[in-house]
Structure formats: structure tokens, C-alpha cells
């Protein structure tokens, strides 16, 4: 396991840009393929926006932890991202699947962010631990042959 990034942000939407710029920097150092980087950025953007917008019932300042590390070797390397927040219990895996086949008039935007995350990541794991939401995302790195 190789730790790549570990940071804490406050529950302010403006903080997301800071997370993204750190991820971009890490991506070029590792380096990650453009597709993997975009999948991670989009997933973090969607999940952090959800946490910050809907996760808190008070007006206090809260900390959200974002950790990113690499696991595995050679042909099976993964990027793991872990988000920990002390917001209201929210398990994105329990969210109802969005119906993608609805016509324009009935199409709903709710749940689309989570849907994107589920499709872009290879694995998601949720756990409620000591009044905190712990969400772990796993994304397989492409081998050089595939990319």
C-alpha cells in the first residue's frame, strides 16, 4: 500500500476545487491515465457535493477526510479513495437505481451523481463507523497494454 494523499477539508463547496487540484497533482506524479483521473475527480466532486449540501443538520463547521492510496502490483493495481464524514447517515449504495429509460418529460436529475459514481468506480463499500460515514471507492488502473 502506497499512501498518495491525505487531506481534510471543511464542509464548504469551495473546498472541492482544492481536493480536485491535489488529485490532479497526484495523478500526474503516479501517473494515472486520463480516464482514471477523470473518473476519480468526477466521483469525488459528486460525493463531496452531496455530503456538503445534504449531510449536515446544523450550521457548524465539519471536517471531511479524504485519503487516497494505491494497492496491488503489476497487472492488478488499484486506486483506493476513502471519504470519512460526520454527517447524517447516508449509504449511497442503498439509493434506488435511477431509471435511465424515462422520456425527457419524466426524466429526473436526483440520484444521477451517485449513479455516475457507481458506474465510474469498480467497487464501492459503505460502513457507518462511530457516527461517521466511511465510504471506500476502488478503481482499477489500466495496464500499459490497455491504455
Amino acid at each position: 500500500m502506497t499512501q498518495v494523499a491525505s487531506l481534510q477539508i471543511t464542509n464548504d463547496l469551495k473546498e472541492i476545487a482544492r481536493v480536485i487540484s491535489i488529485i490532479e497533482e497526484c495523478s500526474s506524479n503516479i501517473p494515472l491515465s486520463f480516464d482514471v483521473e477523470n473518473a476519480i475527480e468526477l466521483s469525488l466532486d459528486e460525493l463531496l457535493t452531496n455530503i456538503i449540501s445534504y449531510g449536515y443538520n446544523d450550521n457548524d463547521s465539519h471536517l471531511i477526510t479524504v485519503d487516497l492510496w494505491l494497492e496491488g502490483e503489476d497487472d492488478s493495481k488499484f486506486v483506493i479513495i476513502r471519504l470519512v464524514d460526520d454527517g447524517v447517515k447516508f449509504n449511497p449504495l442503498e439509493k434506488k437505481e435511477v431509471d435511465l429509460d424515462l422520456p425527457l418529460e419524466e426524466k429526473q436529475i436526483g440520484g444521477l451523481g451517485i449513479h455516475l459514481v457507481k458506474k465510474l468506480m469498480d467497487e464501492l463499500h459503505y460502513e457507518r463507523r462511530e457516527d461517521k460515514n466511511v465510504l471506500t471507492l476502488k478503481k482499477k488502473l489500466k495496464t500499459i497494454k490497455e491504455s
Partner: peptide, 19 residues
Amino acid sequence: DYISSAGLRVLLVGAKKVK
């Protein structure tokens, strides 16, 4: 260069209005 569900939402709102 980038679109998230927030951007998709705006396009959807616009598409419904013009339709």
C-alpha cells in the same frame, strides 16, 4: 473539459423548457 451531474441537470432543465 468536464461535466458533473450539476451540469447535466442544467441541460435537462433547459431541454424540458424548450421542448
